[in-house]
């Protein structure tokens, strides 16, 4: 088998090919002048989707029915509280981050506690939790828009190495997630749980511990994304997480992770996140209105899923 053919077998390659195609289509319209700016923007905005999507991917890997719907609320709460605690003070940047992570740990633990204690499907448990978290965020926010500390805002919006800082952070996180999934015992555990929870239990895998940890990691990543997004956009807004609910699921699935669980795919998340942003900017460049843009986004998601299913059925 040639190298190229081997590459085409990878489940994540399609997301990248699609992203590159859309990039070319966009740049060809704008006459190449926007190539650098577009790439830069794509990496910046894709980063937030990548961070949230990585957490969601770990949860989805746990098997059918495992989806964290509390992601947007967690992002909003972490962003709001962190900015409030930091109070535009540069020395508080680290404590602010720690508080955001603490919120993630709390929400993630509460999520799994609900799933386990009430024996309810994760979708419903995280939905209940997201209501509570969203309310807490509304209560703490009170319509105030606190600015991020200047140094943090500078960090989140600049790109001294040519690559946006947020993209570097997202890259580090995905590298970590890859090592965790492919090289650590924990990664083997959650993959096994996703393939068959009963079998995993019989094999002596600490199923509850691994699942709880996964929900915590997902909530922590959502918190970090919220913290960065709030710093990037100059303040937390109550609806800032809203679009990341559907986005996080879409990115995971387009990236080649199996929705049925048991098979995850880290590189695909980057391809899919870039693709999702580039599609929107392509439709913008073509001067299509918001309505057409959404229709096209939906059609593309479904088309990707259809293609992916053909791929799976054709290869044994």
């Amino acid at each position: 088998m040639t190298h190229a053919a081997k590459l085409l077998q990878k489940p994540w390659i399609w997301a990248y090919l699609a992203a590159i195609l859309v990039w070319i289509l966009t740049v060809s319209v704008t006459g190449g002048s926007s190539a650098i700016g577009l790439t830069h923007a794509a990496f910046t905005f894709a980063s937030f989707a990548v961070i949230v999507g990585t957490g969601q991917m770990l949860v989805i890997t746990l098997g059918p029915g495992n989806i964290d719907l509390s992601v947007p609320a967690t992002m909003t709460l972490a962003g709001t509280v962190a900015l409030k605690v930091m109070a535009v003070d540069n020395t508080m940047i680290l404590p602010g981050l720690l508080i955001a992570i603490g919120i993630g740990i709390a929400v993630g633990s509460a999520n799994y506690a609900l799933i386990k204690l009430l024996r309810i499907p994760p979708i419903i448990a995280t939905l209940c939790m997201s209501f509570l978290v969203q309310s807490t965020a509304i209560w703490t926010n009170r319509g105030l828009r606190v600015k991020p500390p200047p140094a943090l805002a500078e960090f989140a919006t600049s790109s001294p190495l040519g690559i946006p800082n947020v993209a570097l952070v997202a890259l580090l996180i995905t590298l970590g997630a890859w090592v965790l999934l492919e090289r650590s015992l924990y990664g083997r555990w959650i993959t096994a749980i996703g393939q068959s929870m009963a079998a995993a239990r019989m094999a002596g895998i600490p199923v509850d511990g691994a699942r709880a940890l996964t929900y915590v990691i997902c909530a922590v990543l959502a918190s970090v994304a919220g913290y960065l997004l709030a710093s990037f956009s100059g303040g937390a807004a109550l609806n800032m997480g809203a679009e990341y609910l559907l986005m996080s699921i879409a990115v995971v699935v387009i990236g080649g992770t199996s929705v049925a669980g048991g098979y995850s795919n880290v590189p695909g998340i980057w391809g899919a996140s870039l693709f999702m942003f580039l599609v929107v900017s392509m439709l913008n460049t073509y001067g299509l209105g918001a309505g057409f843009r959404m229709i096209m986004t939906g059609v593309i998601i479904i088309a990707v899923i259809l293609l992916a299913s053909r791929r799976q059925t054709s290869s044994p």
Partner: peptide
């Protein structure tokens, strides 16, 4: 996922 796409 399909209904997610359809929601858009």
């Amino acid at each position: 996922v399909v209904t997610l796409g359809m929601s858009f």
